[in-house]
Computed example of a mutant assay.
Amino acid sequence: MITMKDIVREGHPTLREKAAEVVLPATEQDRQILASLIQYVQNSQDPEIANKYGLRSGVGLAAPQIGVSKRMIAVQVHDDNNELLSYALFNPRIMSHSVEKAYLIAGEGCLSVDRDVPGYVHRYARVTVKGTTLDGKEVKLRLKGLPAIVFQHEIDHLNGIMFYDHIDSQNPFQALEGATPIER
C-alpha cells in the first residue's frame, strides 16, 4: 500500500523526467504499481482509511510521484453529473483537445507539493484521452470540466511538468479571455 512517505516531493529528479512508455502487455510488476496508484487515490478519499494511515486526499496520482518513471496514472473524480470516474491507465495520451481553456477557481494542488502555490492553471476545457486499463483494454475517454483538468495534471507528470509551471508568474490570477472558471 502506498502511503504519504512513498510520494516524492518537488525537487526529486523523477518529477522532471519524461517517463518511459509501459511495454504492453504489462508485466505483473507494472500492473501492481498501477493497481497501487488507484488504491492510494481511492483510500485517500475514504475519510476513515485516510485518517488511519495519514493519507492526504487526492483525485489523481502518477507513477513518477512514487519515483517510478513510467507512463501510468490513476484518477478518481466526480464529473459535472456527479458520476464517479475511476481509471488506472497505462500510457495515457491526449488525442485531441478543445481550443477553449478552463481553470479551477481555487487553483490546483499536488500530492508532491507541500505548499500552496496561488494562481490559475489554464488547461484545455475538453480533452479526449486514450490509454490502456489494468485488464489490458484500450479506452477512449471524452472529458470536460474537472475530470479534464485532473487528467491533464496527471499526464503532465509523465512529461516532467508541474502544475505551477503553467501559472503566470507576473500575474498569477489573470484569467485568459474566454476561459471557463470551474468550482471544485
Rank of each mutant, 00 (worst) to 15 (best):
I149M: 11
I94F: 02
E83C: 05
A63F: 06
M4W: 10
G107E: 08
I167K: 02
G11V: 07
L24F: 06
A88N: 01
S86V: 04
C110R: 02
N81S: 15
R184N: 10
A62R: 01
E154V: 03
Q170A: 14
E21G: 03
G67D: 04
L55R: 05
D156G: 04
R93K: 13
L85W: 06
L176F: 14
I38T: 02
A175C: 07
P25Q: 00
L37S: 00
N159F: 00
V77R: 06
K140L: 12
I155L: 04
A50P: 02
N51M: 09
Y53W: 05
T3K: 11
D165N: 09
Y120A: 01
S98F: 01
A175Y: 02
A35L: 11
N81M: 13
A63M: 01
E10S: 10
Q65S: 06
Q29F: 08
T3C: 09
L34N: 00
I105K: 15
H122W: 01
D114I: 05
R31C: 05
R56M: 06
L55M: 04
D80L: 14
E48P: 00
F173W: 09
R142A: 12
P47S: 03
I38Y: 05
E83M: 12
T133Y: 13
C110M: 04
T132E: 13
D79N: 15
Q39P: 03
P172Y: 01
G11R: 06
T14P: 03
I105G: 07
P25K: 01
V150D: 03
E108D: 05
D46M: 04
T132G: 11
Q65V: 07
E10W: 12
G109Y: 13
L37K: 02
C110W: 10
G11E: 03
G11K: 08
V75T: 09
L85P: 00
Q174H: 12
S112Y: 01
I2V: 14
R31K: 15
M4I: 15
K101F: 14
K101W: 11
D80E: 15
E138D: 12
A74M: 06
T27S: 15
L141W: 00
D80N: 12
F163Y: 06
P13A: 04
I7Q: 11
R115E: 14
F90W: 06
R16P: 03
L111R: 10
P13D: 06
K5I: 11
V127N: 08
H97V: 07
S98C: 07
E108N: 08
L84E: 14
T14Y: 12
A88C: 01
G54L: 00
G67T: 05
M72S: 08
R71N: 04
Q170W: 11
D165H: 10
G109I: 10
Y40K: 01
A62L: 02
A50W: 13
P64E: 06
L141C: 06
R31V: 05
P92V: 10
R93W: 08
L104W: 08
Y164R: 01
K101T: 15
L134D: 04
E138F: 06
D116M: 14
M1P: 09
G58P: 12
P118S: 09
D165C: 00
I7K: 10
Y103E: 13
D80W: 13
F173T: 13
D135E: 15
N159D: 11
N82Q: 13
L24P: 00
V68D: 04
E28N: 10
I182P: 08
M72K: 03
